[in-house]
């Protein structure tokens, strides 16, 4: 039931209009962080206030919403955001990636390939990829203006000098359409290749940092690397213990106090779908979901 005390999708119309203008400018300049007047939301910063505001600005009553947190539909963050929009917008919700028209995500891209007509909304903590290299906003803004991204290459080089490889495993910087360097939010670098050429619209919202940016469908997104140290999308060298998938991103789960562990798909919908389809991993139980 829609909570009638609130406007549709919680935010007032003028706020949604402001966010919508920022999203359209973000799509026109892919990868550029558009400032917007982020509102205080009824949840703490760090819980996806940016993503929630972008989702609220995009939602229509006909939408089916899916919310995931690190790939899972059933964790606290995902459940509370899903309930929030059920209450304030009355939209249908789903856990199936293929049935959703809007997917709000914290730190994962679903394993199932997204299609045209779907919108993926990322929750972003620090939108500025250069922030940990240069704390001053005035300077990073100038660096984006001048395409001065040498500092980021130096950072990746220092990784190689120190660790023998690029040690950045998540929030791996990308270059969009040969112009802006962008933080893809803290998705594992395993997900980076899915950013490029996706049929879905990808929108990024950072509430505390007050930035919105976007990737139109079929955008060219390249992970930064070196000729002699090419980008690799890494994952744990195991198969999913439940569904046996060898090509999905895995979470490590500690199972006892004696060092026991198992690796399972981070994307619960993907894993459940595979098990329903009869795939079984080393620890999977037939018929159980």
């Amino acid at each position: 039931m829609t909570d009638q005390a609130y406007n549709f999708a919680y935010l007032d119309e003028q706020t949604k209009g402001m966010i919508r203008r920022a999203i359209l400018k973000g799509l026109a300049v892919p990868g550029y962080q558009v400032p917007f007047a982020s509102r205080e939301m009824p949840m703490p910063y760090g819980w996806g206030t940016g993503g929630v505001q972008v989702t609220a600005a995009c939602l229509t009553p006909e939408d089916t919403l899916k919310v995931i947190d690190q790939g899972a539909d059933d964790t606290t963050n995902a459940v509370s955001i899903r309930k929030f929009f059920q209450r304030t917008a009355g939209v249908a919700v789903t856990e199936a990636t293929t049935e959703a028209s809007i997917i709000q995500t914290r730190h994962r891209i679903p394993e199932t390939t997204l299609s045209a007509g779907q919108i993926l909304v990322y929750q972003v903590p620090i939108p500025e990829p250069l922030r940990f290299l240069e704390p001053r906003e005035t300077e990073t803004r100038k660096m984006h203006e001048l395409e001065e991204y040498g500092l980021m290459q130096v950072k990746l080089y220092e990784d190689i000098a120190r660790h023998g490889q690029i040690a950045t495993a998540y929030a791996y910087p990308v270059r969009v359409e040969g112009r802006y360097v962008m933080d893809p939010s803290p998705i594992p670098k395993f997900d980076n290749p899915k950013l490029s050429g996706s049929a879905a619209i990808q929108l990024f919202g950072a509430g505390r940092e007050q930035r919105i940016y976007a990737l139109p469908p079929y955008s060219d997104v390249v992970s930064l690397d070196f000729d002699d140290h090419p980008f690799t999308a890494s994952k744990a060298a195991h198969d999913c213990a439940l569904c046996g998938a060898s090509d999905s991103y895995l979470d490590e789960v500690i199972t006892d106090d004696a060092g026991g562990r198992m690796f399972v798909c981070s994307d619960t919908d993907f894993c459940g779908g595979r098990r329903a389809g009869g795939h079984l991993g080393a620890l999977g139980v037939a018929g159980a979901l």
């Binding site: 799509l27 995009c58 229509t60 139109p216």
Partner: peptide, 19 residues
Amino acid sequence: NAAVQSAQAFRAALEAMAR
């Protein structure tokens, strides 16, 4: 019905600008 109609109109604008 401003809230719903503007949301539907924005989705048209979003799809147009994205594609």
